[in-house]
């Protein structure tokens, strides 16, 4: 049974578009799967994240071909056989931070955010709810 753990990394190089909207194009995203044969692990350092702190909307877009694997062949199989990157080039997440009012981005500290929304991979969309820690200030 493969278990994918999606970890939403901290927003890096945050820049403001409007008053309450923050985004980055160099966000981090990774996944890990333990199997008997070998572990499957990849990371992507060019992920687009955008958060609207007034509404709590959060959206993420990751290009599949930007996931780096330890083994080139594993990366080829991932793109060619599994996620079919030529047909489905991006993985996206569109959701909301449900308890956005409890997070004060102007005050340093660690917050727990409940995020729910739709994760779309390989053309299939599924709804997820997860808790994530947010830390201010953002440390690279």
């Amino acid at each position: 049974m493969k278990k994918f753990i999606l970890s939403i990394a901290l927003l890096s190089a945050v820049s403001a578009t409007q008053a309450q909207k923050y985004f980055t194009r160099n966000g981090h995203l990774g996944f890990f799967s333990k199997t008997n044969m070998e572990d499957i692990k990849a990371n992507n350092e060019n992920v687009t994240y955008i958060v609207d702190w007034s509404s709590g909307d959060i959206q993420i877009s990751a290009l599949q071909t930007n996931f780096k694997f330890e083994k080139a062949l594993m990366q080829e199989h991932y793109n060619e056989n599994y996620v079919e990157s030529s047909k489905f080039p991006k993985a996206t997440f569109k959701g909301k931070i449900d308890n956005v009012s409890a997070i004060n981005i102007k005050k340093d500290g660690v917050y727990t955010a409940t995020v729910s929304g739709a994760l779309e991979i390989h053309g299939v969309s599924k709804n997820y709810t997860t808790k994530q820690h947010l830390r201010f200030p953002v440390v690279m």
Partner: peptide, 19 residues
């Protein structure tokens, strides 16, 4: 207005043929 990614404008990447 809720399509936040759309606000950023899509950067269309170059995808090379593999395999």
């Amino acid at each position: 207005t809720t399509d936040l990614l759309g606000l950023l404008g899509d950067e269309e990447p170059v995808i090379y043929s593999t395999a």
